[in-house]
Simulated assay, not measured.
Amino acid sequence: MLTTLAALMPVILVIASGYLIARTGLITGDQWRGIEKLAYFVLFPMVLFRTISQADFTSFHALNMGGALLMSIFLMTALLLGARKTIERIWGIPAVRFTSIFQGTLRWNAMIALAIADNVAGKTGLATLAVAMVFVIPVVNILSILVLSHFASGSAPSAQKILKDLFSNPFILSIGLGVLFNLSGLTLPGVVGDTVEIFSRAALPIGIICVGAGLDLSALRRPGPALTMGTFLRPAFMPLLAFGCAMLFGVSGPALVAVVIASSVPCASNSYLLSRQMNGDAKLMAEIITLQTLAATVTTPLALFLLT
């Protein structure tokens, strides 16, 4: 446990430093938006392309890992939707607040996941997690949109808009290009490869500093059933569910580490934006993101220690 925590502690400290930098006013709100865009559209695509283009896909079973992750996502979706009326009857949580619980349980923060994979398993962990993102990101995005559209009376985007967003997602594009480059057997010219590596080295620290800067502790209110459920369903049950599915699919080694990381890191920060755009409970979503990120400093190392 101490070894796992020691591997993750640098990530936790960098997140904390982002929070402190934001609160001191060294970097202001508009400047943070620019840094976030740089990380999202340039730096992280670079690190994903580099790791995927150089990955040895024969070292793990990508389809088995993807199948395990998708199975855990669909099982959790079925459980949440099946329990929605019971949740409302017992705890008085209306449908619109349920959408934030749903997103908080299903979606995951790729920036934190990549940083942890790099620290825990190095280049192999990065490449494996990048492949996992190909399976998971489109599915959880579509499920979140459908649930918000149905339960929050939000205006759902058209199928064409969803497809356009997915295929213009810089993470998905960079992973796809990396796979094509890997299969081609080509290698990047020395100068180009060195340039991409420099961008890659900047991605993870800048990305997780932005995660820390986005935490808003002042927005937290007294915990109620919705906030408690939205915060702890994911770290308490998703790693166990994903681990069980991984065992069914025979997943082991770095692929198992990637499955546990993907299922135990806090939910994606852009869940708040989607909730706001589709008339969900954006305030509850922001609180869930903040508390989950804080809780993950304990729950993610614990999940890695117990399950891998």
Rank of each mutant, 00 (worst) to 15 (best):
M1G: 13
A6D: 06
P10C: 04
V11G: 05
L13N: 08
L13K: 06
A16S: 06
S17Q: 05
G18P: 09
L20K: 01
A22R: 15
R23N: 11
G25I: 00
G29D: 14
Q31D: 12
I35S: 07
E36N: 05
K37T: 14
Y40N: 10
Y40K: 04
L43D: 05
F44D: 04
F44G: 10
M46S: 15
L48K: 03
Q54P: 11
T58F: 06
T58S: 15
G66Y: 08
L69K: 01
I73Y: 09
I73R: 04
T77I: 06
A78S: 06
A78Q: 00
L79F: 08
A83T: 12
E88H: 14
E88S: 14
G92P: 03
G92F: 03
I93V: 07
P94Q: 10
T99C: 11
T105C: 06
L106C: 03
R107W: 08
W108M: 13
W108I: 01
A115R: 02
I116V: 15
A117S: 09
K123V: 13
K123A: 15
G125C: 10
L126C: 08
V134F: 13
I137V: 15
V140S: 04
I145H: 10
L148F: 08
G154F: 04
G154N: 10
A156S: 12
L166M: 05
F181K: 06
L183G: 09
S184V: 03
T195S: 15
T195G: 15
A203P: 03
L204T: 01
G207W: 00
C210S: 08
C210Y: 02
L215E: 00
L227R: 03
G230L: 06
L233D: 08
A236P: 07
A236F: 08
P239R: 04
L240R: 04
G244C: 03
A246F: 00
G253F: 06
V257A: 12
A258G: 08
V260L: 02
C267A: 13
A268I: 02
S269P: 08
Q277N: 12
N279F: 08
L284M: 04
L284H: 05
I288S: 00
L291I: 15
Q292L: 07
L294R: 02
L294S: 01
V298G: 11
T300M: 11
A303V: 09
A303W: 00
F305D: 13
L306F: 04
L306C: 07
